[in-house]
Design a protein around this nucleic acid. Sequence first.
DNA 1: GCAATAGTGTCTTTGAGACAGTATTGA
DNA 2: TCAATACTGTCTCAAAGACACTATTGC
Lengths: 234, 234
Amino acid sequence: MTKASASQDISPAQCPRPFVTVDLVIFTLREGQLQVLLMQRAVPPFEGMWALPGGYVRPDEDESLDGAAARILGSKTAVATPYIEQLQGFGNARRDPRGWTATFAYFALIASEQLALQSGANAEDVAWHPVETRPVLAFDHDLILRTGLERLRGKVEYTILPAHLLPAKFTLPDLQSVYEQILDRRLDKSAFRKKMADAGLLEPVPGEMRHASNRPSQLYRIRSDATPFLGRTI
Amino acid sequence: MTKASASQDISPAQCPRPFVTVDLVIFTLREGQLQVLLMQRAVPPFEGMWALPGGYVRPDEDESLDGAAARILGSKTAVATPYIEQLQGFGNARRDPRGWTATFAYFALIASEQLALQSGANAEDVAWHPVETRPVLAFDHDLILRTGLERLRGKVEYTILPAHLLPAKFTLPDLQSVYEQILDRRLDKSAFRKKMADAGLLEPVPGEMRHASNRPSQLYRIRSDATPFLGRTI
DNA sequence: GCAATAGTGTCTTTGAGACAGTATTGA
DNA sequence: TCAATACTGTCTCAAAGACACTATTGC
């Protein structure tokens, strides 16, 4: 029985390696619109164009891919606890003119109250752009952004992902409005509330209400033990 | 306005790069069981242990990540047109004792009739193992396999993924049986057939029936223009 | 005819949406 | 009292499951 030379065991040192990056699609809700965080590139290639925030994976510094994503998120925004998940990998010989690159794209949602961008030398090059009126993006970042949008819209139907676009405490009418913005259609109030109640992923904050010049509304928060899934997957 | 030194533009050449691999979780259905393709490692680390098929991404040879996955799939099996999709990335400093590695895991389904493994010097080191009785795996491959299983089970409910575990032509009772094996529960025949009919992703093969010592059953195939999704996502 | 499996029809249950109703606040 | 918004109850409709029924073959 010959066990020699499985192809995965060519000596790694001989093998040219692709560049490995992490890119982030960070969504928020501002001014009633879904917006995405973009950076203006300072150097070639694509100098002056807008791109998703990202950076090289640094083996000497990053403990894991998730760690690299958290480092990059923290360097652009001052957000402590966003919702973040891996989106998809993109890698080929053409996406970066400097050579073969592979990127792990991540998908993050942050609340508009947490919007403070990281102060620093380059803060002015970081900006929120409405998704609908976004500029042309560098590299294949428009593809990555569209993939993130699909993930967001696809998951809205059966998760409470949109709750992460709101402050920690929010009302059900707030939340319904977020769903309506992302799905771009009106939802029935009664059905929406029944669905949320059945899912059991939210809990009322005892005694806390939001007051306006009308009937006050109950504040809710995401249950700490909640998985983000609705419906039969519970 | 200072646009210098965006962190993603540290000169790539200065940056140590992780190893980049592609690993495959390849499922099939044999002997009424869900099975996964494994290879026995010929060299350290984890010499002699079983692992998922995989290999380094080769910038000089692979056009893209998908291309690398297809190359590796083709080198282990003689399968022409499997179902394959990207599963998830895994990367950290600890998963391979040789250093920081990142892998793009892929998920493939092939029909048992296409099972011919690639003949070659190492063919005897490639083998199908029932998922339930699999050996302990090298690296973090058990985590990757479990992630693949979750993807399979999670997608069964609303896709025709299981059809890719069958030959090109199959009967509805065949297909229902696959669903039942993966979900590990009985399904109602009437409801199952209605759901498949409504989805419109299958088409009968005109005039072709499977004969046995009972009423013959209609053969179906996946519609060539079909996306694999059922239900409201259509 | 009989066993065996393919395929269909019908009833019931469940959940979502439509929509109208009631409740509670500030002004 | 009124405007405004929060919240609830009820009706309808459609999809899904339970289950019994019919259909077609080999023997």
